[in-house]
């Protein structure tokens, strides 16, 4: 295999050959990584089940705690019509992100993390999936009750121990419409942020409609026992959602 090479704004950029052999690797690499340095690295732990039981709700966890100085974490699926799912900046805390995405067909699923020096480390694998994860209506649209529950948020935060982070889980009721279902335009959560009680932004993320209906996120911001965390999210209609939870607050 030869190294893929592209010319952009007159500058030649090289990406390493894709171990997954994805037909979209160079295309997506240009969009996501631009001219940054990129390498494949198994320390970027992208975990997923061995099978996609539900192509509408496929769990993915990206753990870059072995790498340390991580400033961005991206989860993407090359052959999805909306390839990006989440772009997370763990501003204070451990670089860990878990969520659930839609799979529209068999595709590489990747995690990419950017270090403080601007370089990217990438890892992932192929996942087989039945078609239509992005083009079937969400369950709440079929049931018709999505508007009654829109923006309901559930969550909790568990202190994780010596590193001073709290495992924080956030779930939001939202149809996350992809725009590929006839008659239903794109409608999705676009941003989410987590703020400490002193007003420090601990983490923020951009979110695409390839994230599953009723998005769920697990992150590990720096937060101590008893601390109150504020969550703010906004969707593509400009609607704001707010929640707050206390670390170790119990279930």
């Amino acid at each position: 295999m030869t190294q893929a090479s592209i010319r952009r704004n007159g500058v030649e950029t090289r990406y390493p050959p894709d171990p997954l052999g994805s037909p979209m690797w160079t295309y997506h690499a240009k969009t996501v990584f631009g001219e940054d340095r990129v390498s494949f690295d198994p320390r970027v732990k992208l975990s997923m089940p061995d099978l996609a039981e539900n192509q509408h709700c496929f769990p993915v966890a990206l753990d870059a705690r072995e790498i340390g100085d991580v400033r961005r974490m991206v989860i993407m699926a090359d052959l999805n019509p909306i390839p990006l799912a989440v772009d997370y900046r763990p501003l204070a805390g451990a670089p860990y992100l878990a969520t659930r995405i839609k799979l529209d067909q068999r595709t590489p699923v990747r995690g990419a993390v950017q270090r403080a020096d601007g370089s990217w480390l990438v890892h992932g694998g192929w996942m087989d999936a039945a078609g239509g994860g992005c083009s079937a209506p969400p369950a709440s649209r079929v049931k018709g009750d999505w508007a009654q529950h829109l923006g309901e948020m559930r969550g909790a935060a568990w202190p994780t121990g010596p590193d001073g982070t709290a495992r924080t889980r956030i779930l939001i009721r939202h149809p996350m419409d992809t725009g590929f279902v006839p008659g239903i335009p794109t409608y999705n959560i676009e941003t989410l942020s987590l703020t400490s009680s002193t007003g420090t932004v601990l983490g923020e993320m951009d979110i695409w409609a390839s994230v599953s209906e009723d998005p769920a996120f697990t992150i590990m911001p720096r937060a101590g026992m008893g601390e109150r965390l504020a969550i703010a999210a906004r969707d593509s209609n400009g609607r704001d959602y707010h929640a707050s939870l206390i670390v170790g607050g119990g279930l």
Partner: peptide, 23 residues
């Protein structure tokens, strides 16, 4: 087990995790 996680987990989360939204 992985299939069962897919079948039951979202439902269990909706039942067990507390509401935290402020409207």
């Amino acid at each position: 087990l992985q299939r069962s996680v897919s079948h039951f987990y979202p439902m269990l989360e909706a039942k067990l995790l507390p509401r935290v939204d402020q409207s």
